[in-house]
Structures are given as structure tokens and as C-alpha cells.
């Protein structure tokens, strides 16, 4: 069983004249860029430059002030496009009272996946072997991040929106993120990654988007 769609070059993300203003103060924009399957986009900018905001707009959680976003040809926030994009934010979306396994089973259930399929292998892959039944509240910050990264591996999303995926991770963790990105790209997906530049990001990025 192949968990991912076959690679085919397609424009997964199409951003046109996208601008955002909070209380009429411009935050960023207008931005124009595309992201095709097999590409990794790097969003660079200082603190407060609107990186998180940009990802939330692309995910369809937030309305832009102007401009358009199309995810896989559909407007962001369109119910038909739901599930195409996966957002990994600062808040990892993990329930502290549930175990790693229960958290991932919930995430898989939301995407209509069988919870058992590949869960143990995935945990080995993200370096959480033996932690499956540990409540998330007992994990370290880096381990929580790894648990959230396991979601990327389990869910069938073609577009990843990763907000500071390297934060809280050690050297091995950074390598893990890079490995996950490689797999995503190889299977015809795409990813948009934000970083404030503190972590040296391996030269995978095929596109750079700078927020001033």
C-alpha cells in the first residue's frame, strides 16, 4: 500500500498579491509566489514579520486583507481543499493528558486513517520508540515536537506548512526534520517552512520568501 499519491508536477500553492494588515498596520505583503510539488519553500523573516500569520492564512484559518491563495487549485479555506494542507504550529495540537499513541490515533482518525497502520514504525522513525504509551505531559519539549512531527508522517497531506519546525530540536531532531522533508518532496509533496534564521537549514530550499 502506498500511503502517498504518485509524484506529479503540479502547482500546490499559488499566492497572488497577498497582503495582511492588523488594525490597518501592514504586516507583510504584497507577496507573490508559487510552490510546486517537489519544492520546499523557506519563509525567512525576523520576529514579528508575520511568518506565523502567513502560514495561518495559507492554511485558511485567517483571512488575508487582500490577494488570493489557491491550494491545489482551490481557494484556501474551501471545504473541498481541507486536508490538503497540514499545519504544524507553535502549539503542537497534542493533548497533554493523552499518550503519544492516543494523540496520533486521534489525528489519524480525523483524516480517516486506520490508527494502527504504521504507528510503531513511525515512532521509531521520529525517535520516540518506547514512548508510545507515555502521556505527552511527561515528554520533554523536544520529544513533544517529535510526537507532532510523527503526525506529518502519518497523515496524507500534500502540502506541509511548518512553523519553526527546528525549534526545540537537537542535532538529531534537525536531521529528522530534513529527512521528513526529503521524503515529502520525493513523493511529490511540497512544504513551506518558516525560520528566523537561527538554525542553519540544509540547502534543500528551492524557493525563498522573505518577509521584511
Amino acid at each position: 500500500m502506498n500511503p502517498r499519491p504518485p509524484p506529479a508536477v503540479a502547482t500546490l500553492l499559488e499566492v497572488r498579491e497577498l497582503a495582511f494588515a492588523r488594525r490597518d498596520e501592514p504586516v507583510f505583503g504584497p507577496l507573490d509566489f508559487d510552490l510546486e510539488s517537489g519544492e520546499i519553500g523557506l519563509v525567512e523573516g525576523d520576529n514579528g514579520s508575520g511568518k506565523t500569520t502567513l502560514l495561518r492564512i495559507l492554511a485558511g484559518l485567517l483571512h488575508a486583507s487582500s490577494g488570493t491563495v489557491r491550494v491545489d487549485g482551490l481557494a484556501a479555506g474551501d471545504p473541498a481543499a481541507a486536508g490538503t494542507a497540514l499545519l504544524l504550529g507553535h502549539q503542537l495540537g497534542l493533548k497533554a493528558d493523552l499518550s503519544v499513541r492516543e494523540n496520533l490515533a486521534t489525528a489519524a482518525g480525523l483524516y480517516g486513517r486506520r490508527e494502527r497502520c504504521g504507528l510503531d514504525d513511525t515512532l521509531v522513525e521520529v525517535g520516540l520508540e518506547g514512548y508510545a504509551d507515555v502521556p505527552v505531559r511527561q515528554l520533554s519539549a523536544g520529544q513533544k515536537k517529535r510526537a507532532a512531527l510523527a503526525r506529518l508522517r502519518l497523515l496524507p497531506a500534500r502540502l506541509w506548512l511548518l512553523d519553526e519546525p527546528f525549534a526545540n530540536l537537537d542535532r538529531a531532531g534537525i536531521a529528522l526534520v530534513n529527512r521528513l522533508l526529503d521524503v515529502q518532496v520525493a513523493s511529490g509533496g511540497a512544504a513551506l517552512v518558516t525560520t528566523h534564521g537561527a538554525v542553519s537549514f540544509r540547502d534543500q530550499a528551492t524557493r525563498r520568501i522573505a518577509l521584511s
Partner: peptide, 19 residues
């Protein structure tokens, strides 16, 4: 809202009303 799992519900390919 505080732990971010509501965002995951909003983004899931499911009718939000049903969730």
C-alpha cells in the same frame, strides 16, 4: 484552543459541524 488541537479540527478534512 490553548494546546492548538482546535486548529487541527478546523483543518481536518471533515465537516467541522459534525466534529
Amino acid at each position: 484552543v490553548e494546546d492548538g488541537s482546535l486548529e487541527q479540527l478546523l483543518l481536518a478534512p471533515q465537516p467541522l459541524g459534525l466534529l
